[in-house]
């Protein structure tokens, strides 16, 4: 058990930047470019960690604390989510709700530290970030609720145990609906292309990038690593939903999970390469659509004789 906890820490520490690297490489290939090295994100983080910080005179302690608290809460969420074997170091009854709100709490502190800089530009970004996460939260929470209803439990362990083999099959369209809603949330929450473009520095369109413009050095490294960790965790959730782990062997489970997560990464990269970013005023509609899909799944779960 101790060994598994150490391994979970190691995975949470070292794999998420690789996940981002795979997405970027895949996007570059899809566009016919060579792309940055697979491990570029590690080099960036290392470079940022070696630098010093510059703080604005208007900033208070919230600005300094924001990235640290955000990273800490996302890391705690990583301890709650079972990686393989459907058991986690910190699993307890009702941990799904804590997981969802730890992720939201991390986001909230990024917003606070963006507001704390006193720059109107970052305030605008924080407002966008708050609005869009308010729209994506019902979709996220309702799709988790679908899983909880089918497992009759609010614990990750029971939920993952209750998932049938081959959730992608025709027999269980409810799970497909939930997975679709979760995928939309994954794209929106991690500032991926239909909602936000992770590459642009164009003021009109940025959401996540705007909020972190005034951070530098280790603070920025914490934020970047925290957002990659959040992305990784949500991808893991999606993989658990679509490919329920067949084995009780920890190492095989982790191997299976990695293949699934990298599959999600490739899927995200393909979506990013194929789809155009939607207009900012249409983003709420995209997220409302995801929420309505989740509501449809919820209705299906309560409907008698449901498939």
């Amino acid at each position: 058990m101790i060994l598994e906890i150490i391994e979970q820490i190691a995975i949470l520490l070292f794999v998420p930047p690789l996940f981002i690297g795979i997405i970027n490489k895949m996007k570059a290939w899809a566009a016919g470019r060579k792309g940055a090295p697979l491990f570029q994100f590690y080099f960036d983080l290392w470079k940022l960690l070696k630098k010093g910080e510059v703080y604005s005179r208007t900033a208070t302690w919230i600005f300094t604390a924001g990235p640290i608290i955000s990273l800490a809460s996302i890391f705690c969420a990583g301890f709650i989510l079972p990686l393989a074997l459907s058991s986690s170091p910190l699993g307890f009854k009702g941990d799904i709700i804590l997981f969802a709100y730890l992720l939201a709490f991390g986001h909230f502190f990024i917003l606070l530290s963006a507001l704390d800089t006193g720059s109107s530009f970052e305030g605008m970004g924080a407002s966008r970030g708050a609005a869009f996460s308010a729209f994506s939260e019902p979709a996220f929470f309702l799709s988790l609720a679908i899983l909880c209803i089918h497992a009759k439990s609010v614990t990750f362990k029971d939920v993952f145990h209750a998932l049938p083999w081959a959730t992608w099959g025709f027999a269980h369209p409810v799970y497909l609906v939930a997975a679709l809603a979760l995928f939309a949330v994954l794209l929106a929450e991690n500032s991926r292309i239909p909602v936000d473009d992770p590459n642009t520095h164009l003021e009109l369109t940025m959401i996540h990038e705007v909020m972190v413009l005034d951070h530098g050095g280790p603070d920025l490294a914490f934020i970047l690593y925290g957002s990659s960790l959040k992305f990784f965790l949500q991808a893991v959730l999606l993989v658990h939903l679509l490919l329920p782990l067949p084995s009780t062997n920890w190492y095989f489970g982790i191997f299976y999970l990695f293949i699934g997560v990298f599959g999600v990464g490739i899927l995200v990269a393909l979506v990013e390469s194929a789809v155009a970013r939607i207009r900012l005023s249409r983003v709420p509609q995209f997220l409302i659509g995801a929420s309505i899909l989740a509501v449809l799944g919820l209705i299906l779960s309560f409907y008698k004789g449901a498939p």
Partner: peptide, 20 residues
């Protein structure tokens, strides 16, 4: 019957997509 339900679910989702 499962396939039929799957087709019908696709139809419902497409209805929502067209409206939006």
């Amino acid at each position: 019957i499962q396939d039929a339900n799957f087709i019908l679910l696709i139809v419902i989702v497409l209805d929502l997509y067209i409206v939006s």
